[in-house]
Amino acid sequence: MSARSLSSSTVETTSARGDVDIAAVGSLLADSSRARLLMALDDGRALPAGRLAAEAGVTPATTSGHLAKLVDGGLLVVEVRGRHRYYRLASAAVGHLLEVLTQFAPARPVRSLRQHTRGRALREARTCYDHFAGRFGVTLMAALLDHGFLVGGDGLREPGDGPVGYGTAVDYRLTSDGRAFLDHLGVTVPPRRAFIRYCVDWSEQRHHLAGAVGRGLHDRLLELDWVRRTPGTRAVRVTTEGRRGLRRTLGVEWS
């Protein structure tokens, strides 16, 4: 193939692409069952179809079809582990898409004490894909700043931040004392990703910690059993041991 024909072919291929089709993503999210499946995975876990259906409250008969559409649409990926298939969000970007949508989505009417309790628990402490959010998340961020483990901002929403999701207005940095704190706590920071990022928390409208450091802290607190997942929801709860540990290491009085 000549250089001229190669160039022409490249131009034709490129020009065949039109503008982005956000309606294609919207159609995937417009189905309430698919939306529940996505939200059930917004804590960063990978779950088999049966477990995912139970947690999302979707009938097993329709789950496989919904999962196939979400995988084809690039919102989920599937991992084969032996004879089982596990589904998870395709990336952190999908998790943050869901968080952004929560800012614009109307609240569901509360018709029972159980729904009220669940909503309150999500606002108190929850996961945002692979890090902590809610009042617990912003409290951790504030404690890291108060101790000088993080510098660069004060944890408050900045004019340059969006309404929710990843923020870019503040350049937070981990100090040498912060590194020593993470090492003392036994936090492993995962490689090959942004070291420190932050999100604007949709329920608190303050910053909570994301990025590799946020993920490492999330994993370690779960490992220490300072924080436990609440089955069937993104909410988490701080254990008695966790309250002692937070008081001892960060001076946080969690109630």
Rank of each mutant, 00 (worst) to 15 (best):
L6D: 02
V138Q: 05
R81I: 12
R34L: 07
P106F: 00
R234I: 10
L6C: 03
R83L: 10
A68S: 13
V94D: 09
A16S: 15
A142L: 02
R192Q: 11
H66E: 15
L37P: 01
L47V: 06
T127F: 12
H66M: 10
G162K: 02
E241Q: 08
D31E: 12
P60L: 06
A180G: 03
D201L: 01
Q103L: 10
E55M: 05
R206P: 04
D171Q: 13
F132H: 09
S176G: 00
L185T: 09
Y172S: 02
R126Y: 06
L144V: 02
R237G: 03
R4L: 14
T233M: 04
Y166M: 07
G152R: 06
G82Q: 08
D201N: 03
L70W: 01
A24C: 07
H147Y: 02
L182S: 07
D42F: 02
A142Q: 14
H208A: 04
Y198W: 10
S32I: 06
L52K: 08
S2W: 00
T230M: 13
Y86C: 02
V151I: 12
A180K: 11
Y86F: 14
G95C: 06
A3E: 11
L97G: 07
L101W: 08
R120V: 10
R179V: 06
V164W: 11
A93K: 13
L122T: 09
L182C: 09
H207C: 09
R228L: 13
E204L: 00
Q115A: 13
G73A: 09
L122F: 05
L250K: 04
H66F: 13
G65M: 06
T233S: 10
R114A: 15
V187L: 15
S176R: 14
R51Y: 05
L145V: 06
S203W: 12
R173C: 05
R88L: 15
G251T: 10
R220W: 09
T230H: 06
D43H: 13
L209Q: 08
G134C: 01
E99D: 12
L52V: 06
G82A: 15
P190C: 14
L217G: 01
R114C: 01
G134S: 01
H218K: 14
M141P: 04
G167L: 07
L222I: 02
E12K: 06
C128F: 09
G162R: 06
L76D: 03
P163I: 07
A107R: 12
P190K: 13
S91I: 11
V25G: 07
R45P: 04
A133G: 14
G73Q: 05
R192C: 13
R179Q: 14
Q115T: 03
T13L: 11
G137E: 00
G232W: 05
A53S: 08
T10R: 11
Q115F: 00
G148K: 09
L75N: 02
W226N: 00
G119V: 01
R108L: 07
T63D: 02
V227M: 03
Q205S: 07
G26N: 14
D130H: 12
R243I: 04
D31P: 00
G73H: 04
R229V: 08
L145F: 07
L185R: 15
R193M: 13
T168G: 04
L37Q: 10
R108Q: 15
